[in-house]
């Protein structure tokens, strides 16, 4: 993972083409959700040792945000999907 990412649009690309935004597991709360929900969304992270979802931005490629499912202990990558696709799936 830390060396190569398979972008669903561009194929196998080196890590340095990407910018990492961070945790992709949290959905943005609705405007009227509680203060706590907003605080947790902006500031709290599950920070798992193991499987995690992370936003990687293919800045030097297709400019798409990708959701990379990977292992923080082994760096194994399980899946890479387009973030819009991921968000739509999550919304369903």
């Amino acid at each position: 993972m830390a060396s190569l990412i398979t972008c669903p649009h561009c194929g196998l690309r080196p890590k340095e083409e990407f910018a990492i935004r961070g945790d992709a597991s949290r959905g943005r709360p609705e405007p009227m959700d509680s203060d706590e929900a907003w605080h947790d969304y902006v500031y709290v992270r599950a920070n798992p040792r193991g499987r995690t979802l992370e936003h990687w931005h293919h800045v030097a490629g297709c400019r798409r945000f990708l959701v990379v499912e990977r292992d923080t202990a082994t760096h194994e990558v399980y899946s890479v999907v387009d973030a819009a696709e991921f968000a739509r799936r999550a919304a369903q």
Binding site: A19, I20, R70, T74
Partner: peptide, 18 residues
Amino acid sequence: IDGYSSYAQRGNLATAEH
């Protein structure tokens, strides 16, 4: 930092080169 979440105590070559 390398930029991604990790507990692995090892980094990658691209960052080292940078």
